[in-house]
Amino acid sequence: MNNILEIKGLAKNFKSFALHDVSFSLPRGYIMGFIGPNGSGKTTTLKMIMNLMRKDAGFIEVFGQDHVKFEREIKQRIGFVYDEPVYYEQLNLKQMTSLISPFYKKWNQSLYEDYIKRFNLNSTQKIKTLSKGMRTKYALSLALSHGAELLIMDEPTAGLDPVFRRELLDILMDVIQREENSILFSTHITSDLDRIADYITFINEGRIVLSEEKDRLYERYTLVKGGKDDLSEALKKELVGMSVTGLGFEGLSDHPIQGENLVIEKPSLEDIMFFHTKEQRHGD
Protein backbone atom coordinates (compact mmCIF):
# COMPACT_ATOMS: atom_id res chain seq x y z
CA MET A 1 0.00 0.00 0.00
CA ASN A 2 1.16 3.49 -0.81
CA ASN A 3 1.43 5.31 2.51
CA ILE A 4 1.80 9.08 2.68
CA LEU A 5 2.69 8.84 6.38
CA GLU A 6 4.24 5.99 8.32
CA ILE A 7 5.02 6.05 12.04
CA LYS A 8 6.65 3.15 13.84
CA GLY A 9 7.59 2.72 17.50
CA LEU A 10 7.50 6.42 18.25
CA ALA A 11 8.40 7.17 21.89
CA LYS A 12 8.93 10.26 23.99
CA ASN A 13 9.44 10.68 27.71
CA PHE A 14 8.41 13.69 29.72
CA LYS A 15 8.39 14.00 33.49
CA SER A 16 4.69 13.40 33.89
CA PHE A 17 3.72 11.94 30.53
CA ALA A 18 5.10 9.54 27.96
CA LEU A 19 4.31 8.31 24.46
CA HIS A 20 4.80 4.57 24.15
CA ASP A 21 5.38 2.71 20.90
CA VAL A 22 3.09 4.87 18.77
CA SER A 23 2.66 3.26 15.35
CA PHE A 24 0.18 3.91 12.56
CA SER A 25 0.11 4.72 8.86
CA LEU A 26 -2.06 6.76 6.53
CA PRO A 27 -2.56 5.68 2.89
CA ARG A 28 -2.65 8.23 0.10
CA GLY A 29 -6.05 9.61 -0.81
CA TYR A 30 -7.78 9.27 2.54
CA ILE A 31 -8.80 11.12 5.68
CA MET A 32 -7.69 9.89 9.10
CA GLY A 33 -9.23 11.12 12.32
CA PHE A 34 -6.79 11.16 15.22
CA ILE A 35 -8.91 11.03 18.34
CA GLY A 36 -8.38 10.87 22.07
CA PRO A 37 -9.18 12.80 25.23
CA ASN A 38 -7.31 15.97 26.13
CA GLY A 39 -3.74 15.23 27.17
CA SER A 40 -3.62 11.81 25.50
CA GLY A 41 -0.68 12.63 23.21
CA LYS A 42 -2.31 13.87 19.99
CA THR A 43 -0.51 17.20 19.80
CA THR A 44 2.82 15.68 20.89
CA THR A 45 2.59 13.11 18.08
CA LEU A 46 1.72 15.73 15.45
CA LYS A 47 4.50 18.05 16.65
CA MET A 48 6.99 15.20 16.31
CA ILE A 49 5.86 14.51 12.73
CA MET A 50 6.60 18.19 12.01
CA ASN A 51 9.91 17.87 13.92
CA LEU A 52 8.86 20.71 16.22
CA MET A 53 9.71 18.34 19.05
CA ARG A 54 12.45 15.70 19.11
CA LYS A 55 11.51 12.06 19.36
CA ASP A 56 13.32 9.72 21.76
CA ALA A 57 12.84 6.63 19.63
CA GLY A 58 11.04 5.28 16.57
CA PHE A 59 10.84 6.39 12.96
CA ILE A 60 8.59 8.67 10.96
CA GLU A 61 8.42 8.75 7.18
CA VAL A 62 6.44 11.31 5.21
CA PHE A 63 6.13 10.79 1.42
CA GLY A 64 8.47 7.82 1.99
CA GLN A 65 11.25 10.06 3.33
CA ASP A 66 12.69 10.49 6.82
CA HIS A 67 10.98 13.46 8.44
CA VAL A 68 14.20 14.92 9.93
CA LYS A 69 16.66 14.24 7.12
CA PHE A 70 14.30 15.66 4.50
CA GLU A 71 12.53 18.17 6.71
CA ARG A 72 12.79 21.11 4.28
CA GLU A 73 11.55 19.17 1.25
CA ILE A 74 8.76 17.51 3.20
CA LYS A 75 7.44 20.73 4.70
CA GLN A 76 6.94 22.19 1.23
CA ARG A 77 4.33 19.48 0.70
CA ILE A 78 2.58 19.62 4.09
CA GLY A 79 -0.13 22.04 5.15
CA PHE A 80 -0.03 22.33 8.92
CA VAL A 81 -2.85 23.79 10.96
CA TYR A 82 -1.72 24.07 14.50
CA ASP A 83 -3.89 24.37 17.59
CA GLU A 84 -2.43 27.72 18.58
CA PRO A 85 -0.44 29.10 15.70
CA VAL A 86 2.34 31.46 16.62
CA TYR A 87 2.51 34.57 14.49
CA TYR A 88 3.93 38.07 14.90
CA GLU A 89 1.01 39.55 16.74
CA GLN A 90 1.60 43.19 15.73
CA LEU A 91 1.51 42.47 11.98
CA ASN A 92 -1.62 42.38 9.87
CA LEU A 93 -2.60 39.33 7.79
CA LYS A 94 -1.17 40.69 4.57
CA GLN A 95 2.20 41.46 6.15
CA MET A 96 2.37 38.11 7.89
CA THR A 97 1.51 36.25 4.69
CA SER A 98 4.19 38.11 2.76
CA LEU A 99 6.73 36.78 5.29
CA ILE A 100 5.48 33.19 5.06
CA SER A 101 4.63 32.78 1.37
CA PRO A 102 8.21 33.08 -0.06
CA PHE A 103 9.11 29.91 1.84
CA TYR A 104 6.81 27.88 -0.42
CA LYS A 105 7.88 27.08 -3.98
CA LYS A 106 4.31 26.31 -5.04
CA TRP A 107 2.66 29.28 -3.35
CA ASN A 108 -0.61 30.21 -5.08
CA GLN A 109 -1.46 33.82 -4.22
CA SER A 110 -4.82 33.93 -6.00
CA LEU A 111 -5.96 30.72 -4.31
CA TYR A 112 -4.89 32.22 -0.98
CA GLU A 113 -6.88 35.37 -1.68
CA ASP A 114 -9.92 33.27 -2.56
CA TYR A 115 -9.77 31.57 0.82
CA ILE A 116 -9.33 34.87 2.67
CA LYS A 117 -12.46 36.11 0.91
CA ARG A 118 -14.38 32.88 1.42
CA PHE A 119 -13.55 32.92 5.16
CA ASN A 120 -14.53 36.61 5.51
CA LEU A 121 -11.09 37.60 6.75
CA ASN A 122 -9.79 41.14 6.46
CA SER A 123 -6.19 41.39 5.16
CA THR A 124 -5.51 44.62 7.04
CA GLN A 125 -6.60 43.30 10.41
CA LYS A 126 -3.85 42.81 12.94
CA ILE A 127 -3.11 39.25 14.09
CA LYS A 128 -3.50 40.15 17.76
CA THR A 129 -7.12 41.19 17.24
CA LEU A 130 -8.15 37.88 15.61
CA SER A 131 -10.53 35.57 17.47
CA LYS A 132 -9.61 31.91 17.88
CA GLY A 133 -11.89 30.92 15.02
CA MET A 134 -10.39 33.59 12.76
CA ARG A 135 -6.88 32.40 13.58
CA THR A 136 -7.84 28.89 12.53
CA LYS A 137 -9.33 30.21 9.30
CA TYR A 138 -6.15 32.18 8.62
CA ALA A 139 -3.98 29.13 9.34
CA LEU A 140 -6.20 27.11 6.99
CA SER A 141 -5.86 29.69 4.21
CA LEU A 142 -2.07 29.39 4.46
CA ALA A 143 -2.14 25.58 4.66
CA LEU A 144 -4.38 25.21 1.60
CA SER A 145 -2.53 27.64 -0.67
CA HIS A 146 0.78 25.92 -1.44
CA GLY A 147 -0.32 22.71 -3.12
CA ALA A 148 0.15 20.56 -0.02
CA GLU A 149 -0.43 16.83 -0.52
CA LEU A 150 -0.71 16.14 3.19
CA LEU A 151 -2.82 18.30 5.46
CA ILE A 152 -2.08 17.88 9.16
CA MET A 153 -4.49 19.65 11.46
CA ASP A 154 -4.40 19.81 15.24
CA GLU A 155 -7.87 20.43 16.69
CA PRO A 156 -8.94 22.63 13.75
CA THR A 157 -12.59 22.67 14.78
CA ALA A 158 -12.00 23.86 18.34
CA GLY A 159 -13.26 27.43 18.62
CA LEU A 160 -15.27 27.23 15.41
CA ASP A 161 -19.02 27.58 15.20
CA PRO A 162 -21.11 24.70 13.82
CA VAL A 163 -21.72 26.50 10.52
CA PHE A 164 -18.03 26.82 9.77
CA ARG A 165 -17.32 23.31 11.07
CA ARG A 166 -19.60 22.05 8.31
CA GLU A 167 -17.94 24.24 5.74
CA LEU A 168 -14.59 22.87 6.86
CA LEU A 169 -15.80 19.33 6.16
CA ASP A 170 -16.71 20.42 2.63
CA ILE A 171 -13.26 21.95 2.18
CA LEU A 172 -11.62 18.73 3.36
CA MET A 173 -13.72 16.69 0.93
CA ASP A 174 -12.59 19.07 -1.83
CA VAL A 175 -8.95 18.49 -0.87
CA ILE A 176 -9.20 14.71 -1.29
CA GLN A 177 -10.90 14.93 -4.67
CA ARG A 178 -7.28 14.58 -5.76
CA GLU A 179 -6.45 10.96 -5.12
CA GLU A 180 -2.88 11.68 -4.05
CA ASN A 181 -3.89 13.97 -1.16
CA SER A 182 -4.41 12.89 2.44
CA ILE A 183 -5.56 14.52 5.65
CA LEU A 184 -4.63 13.78 9.26
CA PHE A 185 -7.02 15.56 11.56
CA SER A 186 -6.83 15.49 15.38
CA THR A 187 -9.89 16.29 17.41
CA HIS A 188 -11.80 15.43 20.52
CA ILE A 189 -15.08 16.48 18.87
CA THR A 190 -15.78 13.18 17.17
CA SER A 191 -19.08 14.13 15.55
CA ASP A 192 -17.06 15.99 12.92
CA LEU A 193 -15.43 12.73 11.92
CA ASP A 194 -18.26 10.25 12.31
CA ARG A 195 -19.00 10.47 8.62
CA ILE A 196 -16.11 11.81 6.59
CA ALA A 197 -13.16 9.95 8.14
CA ASP A 198 -11.90 6.88 6.29
CA TYR A 199 -9.58 5.77 9.10
CA ILE A 200 -9.62 6.32 12.85
CA THR A 201 -6.58 6.28 15.10
CA PHE A 202 -7.41 6.43 18.78
CA ILE A 203 -4.76 7.35 21.34
CA ASN A 204 -5.18 7.27 25.11
CA GLU A 205 -2.60 7.99 27.80
CA GLY A 206 0.20 7.99 25.23
CA ARG A 207 -0.66 4.61 23.71
CA ILE A 208 -2.48 3.73 20.49
CA VAL A 209 -5.72 1.94 21.39
CA LEU A 210 -6.70 1.23 17.79
CA SER A 211 -5.99 2.36 14.26
CA GLU A 212 -8.23 1.02 11.50
CA GLU A 213 -10.88 1.68 8.86
CA LYS A 214 -13.81 3.51 10.41
CA ASP A 215 -16.40 1.24 8.79
CA ARG A 216 -14.69 -1.84 10.27
CA LEU A 217 -14.86 -0.22 13.71
CA TYR A 218 -18.58 0.30 13.35
CA GLU A 219 -19.03 -3.31 12.25
CA ARG A 220 -16.99 -4.67 15.14
CA TYR A 221 -18.15 -2.62 18.10
CA THR A 222 -21.55 -2.90 19.78
CA LEU A 223 -23.23 -0.77 22.38
CA VAL A 224 -25.18 -2.88 24.87
CA LYS A 225 -27.88 -1.57 27.18
CA GLY A 226 -30.09 -3.29 29.69
CA GLY A 227 -31.49 -3.42 33.21
CA LYS A 228 -29.23 -3.99 36.20
CA ASP A 229 -30.18 -7.67 36.42
CA ASP A 230 -29.12 -8.26 32.84
CA LEU A 231 -25.53 -7.38 33.63
CA SER A 232 -24.16 -10.84 34.42
CA GLU A 233 -20.53 -11.56 35.31
CA ALA A 234 -20.18 -13.34 31.96
CA LEU A 235 -21.45 -10.27 30.12
CA LYS A 236 -19.14 -7.99 32.09
CA LYS A 237 -16.17 -9.96 30.71
CA GLU A 238 -17.32 -9.19 27.17
CA LEU A 239 -17.30 -5.45 27.73
CA VAL A 240 -14.37 -3.09 27.35
CA GLY A 241 -16.11 -0.51 29.50
CA MET A 242 -19.45 0.11 31.14
CA SER A 243 -21.40 2.61 33.11
CA VAL A 244 -23.99 1.51 35.66
CA THR A 245 -26.74 3.70 37.08
CA GLY A 246 -29.67 3.03 39.38
CA LEU A 247 -31.83 2.20 36.37
CA GLY A 248 -29.58 0.03 34.31
CA PHE A 249 -26.29 -0.21 32.51
CA GLU A 250 -24.67 0.73 29.24
CA GLY A 251 -21.52 -0.89 27.97
CA LEU A 252 -19.28 -1.26 24.95
CA SER A 253 -18.08 -4.50 23.44
CA ASP A 254 -15.40 -4.79 20.75
CA HIS A 255 -17.27 -7.65 19.11
CA PRO A 256 -20.90 -8.41 18.20
CA ILE A 257 -23.05 -9.47 21.16
CA GLN A 258 -26.50 -11.04 21.45
CA GLY A 259 -28.72 -11.57 24.42
CA GLU A 260 -32.32 -11.58 25.53
CA ASN A 261 -33.61 -8.35 27.07
CA LEU A 262 -30.53 -6.53 25.87
CA VAL A 263 -30.76 -3.49 23.65
CA ILE A 264 -28.02 -3.68 21.05
CA GLU A 265 -27.05 -0.53 19.18
CA LYS A 266 -24.32 0.75 16.93
CA PRO A 267 -21.98 2.97 18.93
CA SER A 268 -20.75 6.38 17.80
CA LEU A 269 -17.06 7.25 17.85
CA GLU A 270 -17.78 9.16 21.02
CA ASP A 271 -19.16 6.00 22.66
CA ILE A 272 -16.08 4.04 21.61
CA MET A 273 -13.78 6.71 23.01
CA PHE A 274 -15.79 7.19 26.19
CA PHE A 275 -15.97 3.53 27.23
CA HIS A 276 -12.34 2.82 26.39
CA THR A 277 -11.14 5.64 28.59
CA LYS A 278 -13.69 4.90 31.30
CA GLU A 279 -12.49 1.32 31.73
CA GLN A 280 -9.04 2.57 32.62
CA ARG A 281 -10.32 4.86 35.30
CA HIS A 282 -12.22 1.98 36.85
CA GLY A 283 -9.36 -0.42 36.44
CA ASP A 284 -7.39 0.73 39.49
Binding site: Y30, D170, E179, R195, D198, K214
Partner: peptide, 17 residues
Protein backbone atom coordinates in the same frame (compact mmCIF):
# COMPACT_ATOMS: atom_id res chain seq x y z
CA UNK B 1 -16.50 7.63 -5.94
CA UNK B 2 -14.78 10.74 -4.66
CA UNK B 3 -17.37 13.20 -5.88
CA UNK B 4 -20.21 11.10 -4.47
CA UNK B 5 -18.36 10.95 -1.12
CA UNK B 6 -18.06 14.74 -1.22
CA UNK B 7 -21.71 15.33 -2.08
CA UNK B 8 -22.91 12.99 0.65
CA UNK B 9 -20.19 14.16 3.07
CA UNK B 10 -19.14 10.61 3.82
CA UNK B 11 -15.96 8.54 3.80
CA UNK B 12 -14.40 7.62 0.44
CA UNK B 13 -13.97 4.05 1.70
CA UNK B 14 -17.69 3.80 2.48
CA UNK B 15 -18.58 4.99 -1.03
CA UNK B 16 -16.06 2.64 -2.59
CA UNK B 17 -17.58 -0.28 -0.70
Amino acid sequence: IRSLARDLRISVITTKR
